[in-house]
């Protein structure tokens, strides 16, 4: 079931995709490079169960669209995150319901970090509730931008590529998302993030 290993260490994503147009097997190496992080991002937004399926769908979709990949972009990360984000969007009602429920009850079924005292657990739960509330209050477009930056670690330019919007739009959505999130969360508005 596993593909034969192909010497891909020196090849960037664009070269891999270029070769996969005539030799489709090569595409599997892209999966090995990115499946874990795509899954992690989606699992945080929805659940590991949804992420299992969406991860598979992301690479299937990417494979089917490989002919239209812009080979001038050496890294496929933004492209893949963009596809995953579109698939997450289909579950937006589930995501919103989950965030709203979490903001009310704080009952995230995730395993608790080790060595948590009771006090820090309560504080962590309170923080989770406020963050969930802050995220639930954002529009989907703003939330996508915020989480691609915060969780996907994408630059403005990469987010623009992922979502196929101008960089200016990314900047303004991020600014609005941060402002709203801070207001809902009650954090320090004077704290500046690096970009």
């Amino acid at each position: 079931m596993t593909a034969q290993p192909v010497e891909t260490v020196e090849m960037d994503d664009a070269e891999l995709i270029r070769r996969s147009r005539d030799d489709p097997e090569q595409f599997a190496a892209l999966f090995d490079r990115y499946a874990h992080q795509i899954h992690h991002y989606v699992a945080r937004r929805l659940s590991t169960q949804a992420a299992d399926d969406i991860t598979a769908e992301t690479f299937l979709t990417a494979f089917r669209r490989r002919d239209s990949y812009d080979l001038a972009r050496p890294l496929a990360r933004p492209w893949l995150y963009g596809i995953a984000t579109t698939l997450v969007a289909r579950h937006r009602r589930d995501e919103e319901r989950f965030l709203r429920a979490l903001s009310r009850t704080g009952a995230d079924p995730l395993p608790e970090p080790m060595a948590d005292t009771v006090i820090s657990r309560v504080a962590a739960q309170e923080e989770e509730r406020r963050i969930a509330k802050a995220l639930a209050g954002l529009s989907r477009g703003d939330r996508d931008v915020l989480l691609l930056v915060a969780w996907g670690d994408l630059s403005y330019e990469e987010v623009a590529q992922a979502l196929d919007v101008p960089v200016g739009t990314v900047r303004s959505r991020l600014h609005r998302a941060r402002k709203k999130a801070r207001a809902a969360f009650g954090g320090d508005p004077t704290r500046e993030e690096k970009q």
Partner: peptide, 13 residues
């Protein structure tokens, strides 16, 4: 805080 949120989601099995 947002960067921490649900960071402990289990990795793909």
């Amino acid at each position: 805080e947002i960067q921490r949120f649900r960071a402990s989601v289990p990795t793909i099995t």
